[in-house]
Simulated scan of single mutants.
Amino acid sequence: MTIAKIGIIGGSGLYKMESLEDVEELEVETPFGSPSDAFILGTLGKTRVAFLARHGRNHTLSPSELPFRANIYAMKQLGVEYLISASAVGSLKEEAKPLDMVVPDQFIDRTKNRISTFFGEGIVAHITFGEPICKNLASVVADAIASLNLPDVNLHRGGTYVCMEGPAFSTKAESNLYRSWGATVIGMTNLPEAKLAREAEIAYATLALVTDYDCWHPDHDSVTVEMVIGNLHKNAINAQKVIQETVKRLSENPPASDAHSALKYAILTNLDKAPAATKEKLELLLKKYL
């Protein structure tokens, strides 16, 4: 079943896509439970896309509560091959200013309570993850940003996203530690998505939208909730323009992606001898290797 080849996950502030046409809602069930919300299916330009509000459209799910496996598995069920993840982040570098956009190429995992694999229960798989973002998809996203010349927005191609557990933000000591590691931005959601998307053989890229500086910055204490919400709103408007342009470019020239064959050498278990129940549960991921 292919309903949409392009999926979009909207983070904090991005709960819907205003420019979608021919919109319909679709409740999707997976072997891993229900996703964060109903999917919004619609047309951007001439291309059908699947949109999901990561935290629910009323922002009712904290980062640690997100049904990551259901979200990504549902994308796979809908036929998604390219997944764009828009996310609010804090900046760990002076040059990555509020309202800037970062298209990271690396992650550091600081989560503690997330299940970030579909496998287990009798089937073992180890994906390669040295390059956790699909470079070709990330290039399309970055080129889309560059082409739009958005006011007050600087593009940062590449960078490291620290994924923390949350929901509390970092201490200053942690923030300075991440800066010493050379990290660019910090958020709470994208790494489990990236790992699961790779297992699902979906090309994945992050559109990181800077809302403010993390607490290392000397001006951090002067940041107000109103300022952050204002930046979230501006970022959401800009993100929709970027996503629309990215979808246009993807539909005209879908890039090759190593992610699309990520499981080819990753499964260590002899599937002929694997538990039938697990094979059935993961049939969508395994069928071309069975």
Rank of each mutant, 00 (worst) to 15 (best):
T2W: 07
K5W: 01
I6R: 01
G11L: 10
G13P: 13
L14H: 08
Y15F: 04
M17A: 02
E21Q: 15
E21K: 15
E21W: 03
V23K: 15
E24Y: 13
E27T: 04
V28T: 01
E29H: 08
T30V: 09
P31D: 07
G33F: 04
P35F: 08
F39R: 12
L44M: 15
R48L: 01
H55S: 03
H55I: 00
G56K: 10
N58G: 05
H59W: 03
L61S: 06
E65R: 05
E65P: 03
L66C: 10
P67M: 08
R69C: 08
N71R: 13
N71F: 13
I72N: 05
A74T: 07
A74P: 05
Q77P: 01
L78N: 05
G79L: 08
E81R: 06
S85Y: 12
A86Y: 03
S87H: 13
L92E: 14
E94C: 12
E94M: 13
E95M: 05
E95R: 14
P98W: 03
L99C: 04
L99K: 06
M101S: 05
M101F: 14
M101V: 11
V102C: 12
V103T: 09
P104Y: 06
Q106G: 05
F107K: 00
I108G: 04
I108M: 12
N113T: 11
N113V: 03
R114M: 01
R114A: 02
F118S: 04
F118Q: 09
E121A: 07
V124G: 10
H126C: 11
P132K: 00
N136P: 02
V140Q: 02
V141E: 05
N149P: 02
D152N: 15
V153R: 07
L155R: 09
H156K: 11
H156Y: 09
Y161H: 13
C163A: 07
G166F: 00
A168Q: 14
F169E: 08
T171Q: 06
K172H: 00
K172Y: 02
N176Y: 02
L177S: 00
L177Q: 03
Y178L: 11
S180V: 08
W181L: 14
V185L: 10
V185M: 12
V185I: 15
I186C: 13
T189D: 03
L191H: 07
E193I: 05
K195F: 05
K195E: 01
L196C: 11
L196I: 12
R198L: 06
E199P: 11
E199Q: 14
A203D: 03
A203G: 01
T206I: 14
L207G: 11
L207D: 09
D212G: 04
C215W: 10
E226L: 00
M227L: 00
M227F: 03
N231L: 02
N231A: 12
H233Q: 09
K234C: 06
A236M: 07
L250W: 01
N253Q: 12
P254Q: 03
P254E: 02
P255A: 01
P255E: 02
A256I: 07
S257I: 07
D258K: 09
D258A: 15
S261F: 09
Y265S: 12
L268V: 09
T269Y: 10
T269L: 09
D272F: 12
A274R: 10
A276D: 14
E280V: 06
E283A: 13
L285S: 06
L286P: 08
